[in-house]
């Protein structure tokens, strides 16, 4: 027989999971509601909001922009984050902790601070807010995600592996291509997926660095403020859940797999 304590714990677990996920479930349910305004109880079932959303040019443009921003930010973040991690992993001095701290800082700072700082920096140089300023903003935190993943991997990698490559006649390039890159690959992949997901649903920094453009999250924000196209918002949110949840799940799988490396 279960003790009362165990029952209480399970009740708490269910309550917390419910608290976290019921709102999401409701939004998904609304996406299929026939009523033009999200309200409870649901009246009728329909999928025509999906067609409407798909045919909405604003949504399409926003989706495209979000994908482009997330894609480009991720590519740059993979390059910068991986190189930074390799450089820091090689450092031996006290400078290592300092450099590591400075690199990770962007993710510790509140988004509003990063956003404002970037906005005033762009204004200082008279740069117009554009696609490129959004990407610049996203690179700041995407790079950290990749860096963190890769440095964690490198810390667990015995130094003797690269020494063995050098010992066997491998120069720096061969050692990178044949040993280090394969060893880092799943960590880089996981970092890239997380960075993509983070960029895809980012609101705060984007608010400060976007000009006339709307990313998908910004479009949602606008639509809700104006109280327009609310059924489409539900559909878009549903799509964003998929777009972010899938990379995160994949990333978790990659990170989990990496536990078997190096044995």
């Amino acid at each position: 027989m279960r003790s009362n304590g165990a029952v209480l714990i399970w009740a708490a677990v269910i309550a917390i999971l419910g608290f976290l996920f019921i709102p999401i479930v409701i939004i998904i349910a609304y996406a299929f509601s026939a009523a033009p305004i999200p309200a409870w109880p649901l009246v009728g079932f329909t999928t025509h909001w999906f067609a409407d959303t798909w045919n909405d040019d604003e949504v399409r443009e926003a989706l495209l922009l979000s994908l482009e921003v997330a894609g480009l930010s991720t590519v740059v973040a993979v390059l910068l984050g991986t190189l930074a991690a390799m450089a820091v992993a090689r450092m031996r001095s006290v400078g290592r902790e300092l450099v590591s701290f400075v690199l990770v800082l962007p993710i510790a700072l509140p988004g509003i601070l990063t956003g404002m700082a970037l906005a005033s920096y762009f204004a200082f140089w008279s740069l117009n807010l554009s696609f490129w300023t959004i990407v610049a903003g996203h690179i700041t935190f995407c790079t950290v995600i990749v860096y963190n993943n890769v440095i964690a991997r490198l810390r667990r990698l015995p130094r003797s592996l690269s020494e063995a490559s050098a010992d066997l006649g491998g120069n720096a390039f061969l050692t990178f291509r044949r040993v280090m890159l394969p060893m880092m690959a799943s960590a880089i992949g996981a970092g890239a997926l997380l960075a993509f997901a983070l960029s895809f649903d980012e609101v705060i920094v984007t608010t400060f660095t976007a000009g006339a453009q709307n990313t998908l999250p910004l479009w949602i924000f606008g639509a809700i403020r104006l109280g327009q196209k609310l059924p489409e918002v539900n559909v878009v949110v549903f799509a964003i859940i998929l777009f972010t949840a899938i990379p995160v799940l994949l990333a978790q799988k990659l990170i989990g797999d990496s536990g078997r490396l190096g044995r």
Binding site: P158, S160, L161, D167, L168, N171, R178, L261
Partner: peptide, 17 residues
């Protein structure tokens, strides 16, 4: 190291996994 005509057997073997 990669130009020296010597090779090492490492304590942890350092095989490429």
């Amino acid at each position: 190291p990669f130009e020296r005509p010597v090779n090492t057997v490492f304590q942890d073997y350092a095989l490429f996994p």
